[in-house]
Design a protein around this nucleic acid. Structure first.
Lengths: 207, 207
DNA sequence: TCTCGACTGGACTTGCCGGTCCAATTTTAT
DNA sequence: ATAAAATTGGACCGGCAAGTCCAGTCGAGA
């Protein structure tokens, strides 16, 4: 089952994944054919099936993994260090900027939408990504609670879940309408809400 | 351009739309073929193209319109009458229940994901639906402001945008992971937040 | 150098699916 | 009743894209 790849082999494999991801970002999953990937990456049909014996579906899954990883790493180091309001604001900017640049096609959601129910693998990739994302946000909330900047009574996990939902919805709306306003509104309202709890429910640490 | 349909004709046309919508809900857009629709609705190829000269794409667009309409009407009458906290809570229940029942495939997002950018029509359908949805929420916020139940300083449109994003994201996450928790968290956190503003920023109307 | 297996090239097969066509049949209007 | 228009049936076409096959080439170790 496990195949050993020479350095050259794994380089080719990686080139295929990244080329496919780029192609999908431009054309969308449905419109991207194996021939498109072949042409773009300078490979042949047999190579595609050599590295991805499961064919198109296996390649798509590999692309999904690759993109899921990018989504999270693109938010670092900010996402992993939400320990001041300044950091939260920076993270907000990074996130908005990322999606402004990416624009139009969201390769991950597209891939999942197509693979969707048929393959549990795709679902697992997304679920894991969302879990990690939410965990990092919740960690940030707790860090601020520790500094008495957020009401300690507040449920950090629920707040993180709501914020994550807002982000996902904001992105989804951007993909449909082309407008970033909802993503911004979701982030701004949520962060402002978190900041306000400190005034209402807890001791203010500093002026 | 405008074709007149006899009662029989428009009945057939409607049957095709609803059959296609059902098929798409089960199989997804990508997997649904015209032959599937044909078989399910007991029609022939020529009928499909008779009623939808633009072929598959035009049919998909009609399905998108049909589903977009359902999404909004399914939330009535609650969504159109958010004039008490009781009404807000009922609306929240209706919404969660709707998506709990619908489960898995979201035909609308699927259709849009596929048509996406290629056809401005699909985008317009979704944009219009989201606009109306958001407008009704904002109207509800203003109604509560008029009753001094929400801080009058609060930007109703921004709040509605953020809440809508949370709903969309909650649904999207449900489609990926199967869990309703994020939709519930988004709704609960947002509504609770709105209620809390009345205590902080405005005169309380009654006990 | 030789040789084995990993790696590559690209022609070919296969099946599906959107779309076309035309002939038949039913409905509507006069 | 009858012609015109709307509606219906289903065979057929053409293209495309996934997947197969086999004949090579390359590269590392004996």
């Amino acid at each position: 089952m496990v195949r050993e790849l020479t350095p050259k082999g794994s380089a080719t494999r990686q080139r295929i994944i990244e080329g496919a991801a780029a192609e999908i970002r431009e054309l969308g999953v449905v419109a991207t054919t194996l021939d498109d990937v072949r042409r773009r990456t300078g490979t042949s049909k047999s190579q595609l099936f050599h590295y991805f014996p499961g064919g198109r579906e296996e390649l798509l899954l590999a692309v999904a993994r690759y993109e899921a990883d990018r989504v999270l790493t693109d938010q670092q180091p900010q996402l992993g260090d939400l320990t001041s309001w300044r950091a939260w604001e920076e993270w907000r900017e990074v996130l908005v900027e990322r999606y402004r640049r990416q624009g139009w096609h969201c390769p991950l959601s597209a891939v999942v939408a197509q693979l969707g129910r048929s393959t549990p693998g795709a679902q697992a990739v997304v679920t894991e990504m969302l879990d990690q994302w939410q965990a990092e946000i919740a960690e940030g909330v707790r860090a601020m609670q520790a500094q008495h900047e957020i009401d300690p009574e507040l449920d950090a996990d629920e707040a993180a879940a709501a914020l994550l939902a807002g982000i996902q919805g904001g992105v989804m709306i951007m993909l449909s309408t082309g407008r970033l306003t909802h993503l911004e509104a979701a982030l701004d309202v949520a962060i402002r809400h978190l900041r306000e709890t400190s005034a209402a429910g807890s001791v203010r640490a500093s002026g």
